[in-house]
């Protein structure tokens, strides 16, 4: 497995993975005409494209909305899912296992099916066009709970015992010992949640009736909705939309890998 063929294979895989991203970056610096002509060299159009984008769309607002949604979702989801995962493991019981099984069923529900009832529910509470309506359905994710439950398995139970003897309350143990110890699991979960939340499209599009709440994926879709599309501007928007998730992954990738590793011990 460590021969030349495997290195060639790895190189091909890596190039295939990165090439479309390269095309995206290069296209952001080209004119619409060049993008449609599959030009693969960088052009001098970046500033022009940015100016056009800023003139056409409220980029700042969309970035802020997306950030607010994604950060809000990530923070709440980490809290809710990790405390649940911890609870499932540290207070393990047969009935809790059963509950986990039931919760996992939620992974199998197609979103398109629940969208209308969900919308009706939020509308009944007057919560359309609110950040909370975007975030709330995305907080409790069975997969993330599972991830934390598995990670909690490697959390030394002696520590819990010792902390209890020291008189720490259960929540204190979770907040002061579990969270700091499990930083890499949190990083891994944060990457997954943030990416999903940032790229979420269908639900925000339905629930955010007021376009002042427009998110980055919605902004991209706006750019393609007219009779004339400027593909250079579009690719720039696409690049800007992808940057935060890519940067987050690059920053957290070591912790991410560790976190996933820790979770499946």
């Amino acid at each position: 497995m460590r021969s030349v063929p495997s290195l060639v294979f790895l190189t091909v895989a890596a190039l295939a993975s990165v090439f479309p991203l390269y095309f995206m970056v290069v296209s952001a610096t080209n004119t619409s005409q060049d993008v449609l002509g599959s030009r693969l060299l960088p052009g001098g159009q970046l500033v022009e494209n940015l100016n056009k984008l800023l003139a056409a769309q409220d980029l700042g607002a969309a970035m802020w909305n997306s950030t607010l949604n994604a950060v809000g979702t990530t923070a709440l989801s980490l809290l809710v899912c990790s405390i649940a995962g911890y609870g499932f493991e540290v207070f393990h019981s047969r009935n809790k296992d059963r509950l986990m099984g039931v919760l996992l069923l939620a992974m199998m529900i197609p979103f398109a099916a629940t969208m209308i009832p969900l919308f009706r529910m939020f509308a009944d509470f007057g919560l359309t066009s609110t950040t909370i309506a975007v975030i709330l359905p995305a907080i409790s994710v069975p997969f993330i709970i599972l991830l934390f439950r598995q990670a909690a398995r490697s959390f030394p139970h002696e520590i819990v015992e010792a902390a209890r003897i020291d008189g720490l309350r259960e929540l204190g143990i979770f907040l002061r010992i579990f969270i700091p110890t499990m930083r890499s699991t949190y990083a891994a979960a944060a990457v997954v949640i943030f990416m999903t939340a940032w790229n979420n499209f269908l639900w925000p599009k339905v629930i955010l009736i007021n376009e002042a709440f427009q998110t980055m994926p919605m902004l991209i879709s706006n750019l393609t909705s007219g009779y004339v599309t400027d593909y250079g501007v579009l690719m720039l928007a696409v690049l800007l939309t992808s940057l935060p998730t890519m940067v987050l992954f690059l920053v957290l990738q070591r912790a991410f890998a560790q976190g996933i590793t820790g979770a499946i011990k």
Partner: peptide, 11 residues
């Protein structure tokens, strides 16, 4: 935060 920007009646 959401409501603060006058969201509910804006759209």
């Amino acid at each position: 935060c959401g409501g603060g920007s006058g969201s509910n009646d804006g759209g």
